[in-house]
């Protein structure tokens, strides 16, 4: 049991943390009725994905023991690092997620703009109230 725990939970703690946050975000994005809460959920979802992706790049975990360092060093070539052959963190996931953050910010901006327009039109940002309003319009159309 302890072995299983060590192998699957403690060693991969970054996955567990990221996945928990991802599920929280996904739940909020799917299940909440308030449009802003949905958006907050979406942001949590995206950010947790960035967290997970960046943690992929952390390859120097074993270095912690031998050299007393916390993970790999920053991916910068400096003399001491080259001489002693430090393991450095993979820089690519960080760079990719910088782009991802830009995309996520743009998505949030577009979504917020739409929420504002929805509020101006319906006077509410609760999804069920908006749907009810639309249903009334349908009924009015059907009855002439």
């Amino acid at each position: 049991m302890m072995e299983w725990l060590a192998q699957h939970v403690l060693e991969k703690y970054n996955f567990w943390i990221a996945m928990t946050i991802i599920l929280i975000g996904l739940y909020a994005a799917m299940a909440k009725g308030n449009l802003l809460k949905k958006l907050i959920g979406l942001s949590i979802f995206q950010t947790a994905m960035f967290l997970w992706f960046i943690s992929l790049g952390d390859v120097g975990r074993d270095v912690m023991v031998t050299w007393g360092l916390k993970g790999g060093t920053p991916p910068i070539i400096w003399e001491k690092a080259v001489e002693e052959g430090y393991t450095y963190v993979n820089p690519l996931p960080n760079v990719l997620m910088l782009t991802g953050i830009v995309v996520s910010a743009a998505t949030t901006a577009v979504a917020l703009a739409i929420v504002i327009r929805i509020y101006q039109k319906y006077g509410t940002i609760e999804e069920d109230e908006i749907l009810e309003r639309e249903l009334q319009e349908e009924v009015r159309y059907a009855s002439g």
């Binding site: 799917m30 979406l42 995206q46 997970w52 992929l56 996931p93 979504a111 739409i114 639309e134």
Partner: peptide
């Protein structure tokens, strides 16, 4: 288009972003 398109577009934002994140997950 305004009007109901706003709500339709908002649903698309949420679903589309979830789809994009799933894609980037797979790529990861």
């Amino acid at each position: 288009a305004g009007g109901r398109a706003l709500r339709a577009s908002y649903n698309y934002v949420i679903m589309g972003s979830i789809g994009a994140v799933f894609y980037i997950f797979g790529v990861g």
